[in-house]
């Protein structure tokens, strides 16, 4: 599968990666090669094989529904953020719904 420059830009945008315009052809080439390599798997006949979602042969661990007050301090957590006020993380305005 051949990735175009547009595909690369779109993937970079979705992942919020800032990439240099100059590097796009190289990324497109490398990513295409990776895909091509993985595509070899398509040649295997898997009709009789059940889909696998995880390689581990163990059961999903579950916990009882018991609430515990978080041990982390709000002030310390908020201090990690670029901006905070009134107990809230502060971010550039997101008004998609107004």
């Amino acid at each position: 599968m051949e990735l175009t420059a547009t595909d690369v830009s779109k993937i970079a945008y979705l992942a919020r990666l800032a990439i240099q315009e100059d590097n796009i052809p190289q990324y497109a080439d490398n990513l295409s090669k990776i895909l091509e390599f993985v595509t070899q798997l398509n040649s295997v006949d898997t009709d009789a094989v059940e889909p696998m979602f995880h390689s581990g042969h163990i059961e999903l661990r579950q916990r009882a529904d018991e609430a515990k007050q978080p041990s982390n301090s709000r002030d310390k957590i908020l201090a990690l953020a670029p901006d905070a006020a009134a107990g809230l993380f502060v971010v550039p305005q997101v008004i998609e719904d107004k």
Binding site: Q62, R63, Q69, P70, N72, A86, G87
Partner: peptide
């Protein structure tokens, strides 16, 4: 295991898993 209580002081009911801190793992309720 953080509480689901509604109406608490902001950002007091979120633990490291809810905050998406590196190195934590989700465990299903």
């Amino acid at each position: 295991s953080a509480p689901t209580r509604y109406g608490a002081e902001p950002n007091t009911q979120a633990n490291l898993i809810d905050l998406g801190m590196p190195g934590v793992l989700p465990v299903l309720n």
